[in-house]
């Protein structure tokens, strides 16, 4: 039921996002143009330029929004499951900052590297910082939450400082590109970007739900999960790798977009529970919808200029996040009394 609703929501968001922008394309025409590309001819007329705008500009951007939003949300849900904490987030544990550092390094120091290699480098940055945080927060075979957050904080600070240093050395053009990374945008979307991102998204999105049952048992703690016969080390390595793959690839094409990975799983947990078998796919669907809609806002609010997407999600996400904290605090107070 939940799944059907979320799929319907995503389809609606995509159609809406395809129609809205500098050139408004009515909903029915959007459907007609999309079906026309599939050689289904509806008795609805549209202009050549509408078809071009939709197919060349808007649709790649919407596809990227779906992939990035879905990936960030699903990676968030998986990482929260792994760290057994609903407040863990790819951003909080340093993955995004590491990725951005390597991206900025590519832009400024090794300017001129191809888009493909930049993708690879950004991904490496994500993996390295994630591994470092994970490594630092473990002692005696178990991960400690407090140490983890502190390690994430430390690595974040280090990466941000280095990113700042490199930014300081950048020239004007490079500075514009750097700004793109730190504020997040889907503006660079083309079919080529979509194709480059696709494998990084499809593989983890298919594999992560296979770990869902294990992630549920992991909520009991590492020892208890091991007693249930779960290969704990493989699970941890698998989730870290797949989540880092997702987040690293997304940051590479869209820069840092915060709060999606934190808010989306949280909304779904309070609506339909923590079972990762439902939570992981549902997070993808809701994250995709929300980011697609946020991107519509980022394109239309101050048109013809664009608001950076990361700023839109932060402005929308922060009040939600604080609201959730307050609710949790109230619950804690009721249990205590």
């Amino acid at each position: 039921m939940m799944r059907v609703l979320l799929i319907a929501g995503l389809v609606l968001s995509v159609l809406l996002a395809c129609g809205m922008g500098a050139m408004h394309i009515p909903l029915l025409r959007v459907v007609a143009i999309l079906l026309y590309k599939l050689h289904l001819h509806l008795p609805i007329s549209f202009t050549e330029s509408e078809a071009n705008v939709l197919w060349q500009i808007r649709l790649p951007r919407v596809c990227m929004g779906v992939m990035v939003g879905g990936s960030l949300a699903m990676a968030g849900a998986a990482i929260q499951g792994l760290f057994r904490n609903p407040l863990a987030d790819p951003g909080l544990v340093g993955i995004s900052a590491g990725a951005a550092l390597f991206a900025v390094l590519c832009i400024v120091v090794f300017s001129g590297v191809s888009y493909y290699w930049m993708n690879v480098a950004t991904f490496l940055g994500a993996v390295l910082s994630a591994l470092l945080v994970f490594r630092l927060s473990r002692s005696g075979g178990s991960t400690h939450m407090a140490t983890l957050l502190l390690a994430g904080l430390g690595i974040n600070a280090l990466c941000n400082a280095l990113t700042g240093l490199i930014t300081y050395m950048a020239n004007n053009d490079q500075l514009r590109s750097v700004t793109f990374w730190t504020m997040g945008s889907l503006g660079g979307a083309t079919w080529a970007t979509v194709a480059a991102l696709l494998p990084f998204v499809v593989v983890p999105v298919l594999l992560l739900p296979r770990l869902a049952k294990w992630l549920n048992a992991f909520a009991l703690g590492e020892a208890a999960a091991a007693h249930l016969g779960i290969p704990v080390k493989r699970l941890k390595a698998g989730v870290m790798l797949l989540a880092t793959l997702l987040v690293g690839a997304c940051v590479a094409v869209s820069g840092i977009i915060g709060f999606v990975g934190l808010i989306v799983p949280h909304i779904l947990r309070s609506a339909s529970g923590s079972d990762h078998r439902a939570l992981l796919p549902n997070s993808f669907l809701l994250g995709a919808s929300l980011l697609t809609l946020s991107d519509v806002l980022s394109r239309t609010l101050i048109a013809p200029a664009e608001l950076p997407l990361g700023i839109v999600t932060a402005i929308l996400g922060t009040p939600l996040f604080i609201g959730m904290l307050m609710k949790q605090k109230r619950q804690l107070n009721t249990w205590a009394s």
């Binding site: 929260q80 499951g81 057994r84 904490n85 609903p86 049952k213 549920n216 048992a217 909520a219 009991l220 703690g221 208890a224 249930l228 016969g229 779960i230 947990r269 309070s270 529970g273 923590s274 079972d275």
Partner: peptide
């Protein structure tokens, strides 16, 4: 000690025993 920080229901937790 079992600290479960994610909101699983009692039945879901007991069902985890059947996971193997």
């Amino acid at each position: 000690q079992y600290a479960v920080n994610l909101p699983f229901t009692v039945r879901e937790v007991v069902m985890m025993g059947r996971y193997p």
